Simulated assay, not measured.
Amino acid sequence: MRVLLLGANGFLGRFVADRLLADPAVHLTALGRGDDADVRFDLAGGSPGALTRFLDAVHPGVVVNCAGATRGGARDLTRHNTVAVATVCEALRRSGCGARLVQVGCASEYGPSQPGSSTAEDAVPRPGGPYGVSKLAATELVLGSGLDAVVLRVFSPVGPGTPAGSPLGRLAEAMRRAMQAGKGGLKLSGLGAQRDFV
């Protein structure tokens, strides 16, 4: 099976790439902005036509989109999380490859939950900031595209390379600084939230 992975060098993309590369039945092509991508392409600035030509040449059966941004202002988040997905959807509509799109969404699309409650998969999304709004807009683009597509909303991923801007990344950095300073303890606040970690 031919798989095109978008955002293969990002936090989630690296893990997805490792898993796909371990499967001998998968022929993986990585598309991204970095030099170590198989093909360099900026989804936020590239044209759907150029991406369509690439899709027609590679002819993947599945496109997995792990690309995006977790930090920045509303404009950058919209460009990297929403406009980029619009480019992918339009290119897939134009292409003859017929690939299935797997869009990686996130818990921020739901927004904050009420204390003592949990967020179910069918909860009404109410994102609380520009990041969640940009990811929810991308989800809506994918689900309304008419493509063979699915959105996976990933909750609280953690592991090596956790982004510094995420809550767990900030915690890891605070712990590192405390250990370097020889502090025997670290005072934390807001520990009432319960999360499922992936």
Rank of each mutant, 00 (worst) to 15 (best):
E90H: 06
G13I: 06
A120M: 14
V39H: 08
L4G: 05
V64E: 03
V150W: 05
T162R: 03
A178G: 07
L101I: 05
G146Y: 07
G185Y: 15
G132T: 01
G192L: 12
V16S: 02
S47K: 08
G73Q: 07
A137P: 07
A69F: 03
F155S: 11
F11D: 02
N9Y: 08
T29D: 08
R153H: 10
C106M: 13
L152P: 04
G98V: 09
L43R: 04
V63T: 03
H27M: 12
R14F: 07
G129I: 06
C89N: 00
D18V: 10
T70A: 13
A120I: 07
C97M: 05
L28C: 01
S95L: 02
T52P: 14
A25Q: 13
L6M: 00
V64L: 03
A91M: 06
Q180E: 14
L20I: 01
G165R: 08
A193I: 12
P163S: 10
R93T: 11
V198N: 15
G45K: 07
R40I: 04
D122Q: 10
D148K: 11
Q194D: 12
V39Q: 03
C66P: 03
D196Q: 15
R100S: 12
P163M: 02
G192V: 11
H80L: 13
G68N: 03
G61P: 12
H80N: 14
P115W: 09
A137Q: 12
A99I: 05
G185C: 14
V133F: 02
L28K: 00
G146Q: 06
D196T: 15
L55A: 07
A107G: 13
V85L: 07
P127W: 01
R19E: 14
V3L: 02
F41I: 09
K135G: 08
D42E: 08
